[in-house]
């Protein structure tokens, strides 16, 4: 054997020979049929259903908060921030579930593997959305104090305190954008991203690496239209 061509030819000949000796066992077809669906995707289904429920509950609560505070614009804005975030979680979960339920192994390999890796990165998607809360923490603080203690901290707080909160929000905004960008599957080889993603386990790391591999393969091989 001197090159790949020789090896490939030998391999093909061997496969042909082996194929002759494979027998079909027709008796067990009935037993095969009774097997339940595989559970490999159950974890992702659970995570996305949970996120969907959280999204619905948060959106309803935020909507209710807005309706009951129409007289105070800062409260309406706080409610709107929470509502927007809940809707992002809700829509994200719906999109992930749609991917899960429409996964069809008879479709082209690149499409299916793309979808599968996106599903495996569900947790990362929700973490990235959650980061968006950071610069808007004050909205949640306002709502919390209003709902739990019946206190409007925006009215009670003095100007300097409010300015310091705004400055802190700005800092958190910068941090959120930085972390959001770092937590992209494309940055998987960077130490910080690796460290941040450790919490999701090896599955997410592998999915990110594979997604990159897949995208590189697609970039290289111009996709059919």
């Amino acid at each position: 054997m001197n090159n790949v061509q020789d090896l490939t030819q030998l391999w093909a000949a061997q496969e042909k020979q082996l194929q002759q000796s494979v027998r079909l066992n027709t008796i067990t077809l009935n037993e095969i049929r009774t097997h339940k669906a595989q559970h490999k995707m159950r974890g992702y289904l659970g995570l996305n259903v949970f996120s969907l429920i959280v999204g619905v509950l948060m959106a309803s609560s935020s909507g209710y908060f807005i309706l009951t505070h129409l007289d105070a614009i800062h409260m309406v804005l706080s409610g709107a921030v929470a509502l927007l975030w809940s809707l992002l979680i809700f829509v994200g979960a719906i999109l992930q579930l749609e991917k899960l339920f429409t996964l069809d192994y008879t479709k082209p390999v690149l499409d299916v593997q793309h979808k599968l890796n996106k599903i495996r990165l569900s947790a990362l998607y929700f973490l990235r959305i959650s980061l968006m809360i950071l610069p808007f923490y004050f909205a949640y603080l306002l709502m919390f104090f209003d709902v739990v203690f019946g206190v409007d901290i925006y009215v009670l707080g003095d100007t300097n305190w409010l300015i310091s909160q705004a400055a802190f929000s700005l800092l958190l905004g910068v941090l959120a954008v930085y972390l959001y960008r770092q937590l992209s599957p494309g940055n998987i080889n960077k130490p910080l991203t690796k460290w941040l993603m450790q919490g999701f386990g090896s599955q997410a790391m592998e999915a990110a690496e594979e997604l990159n591999q897949l995208e590189e393969f697609e970039r290289y091989s111009e996709k059919k239209t």
């Binding site: 030998l10 082996l18 000796s21 494979v22 097997h35 595989q38």
Partner: peptide, 28 residues
């Protein structure tokens, strides 16, 4: 999560072929 079963719709090949060749192919 694999379903443990002995059920095989397709029986295994009666022969294993050239194992050395298969190892070489797998390495490649």
């Amino acid at each position: 999560y694999h379903i443990t079963t002995d059920v095989m719709l397709i029986d295994e090949p009666q022969e294993n072929g050239n194992e050395e060749l298969m190892l070489e192919i797998q390495r490649m």
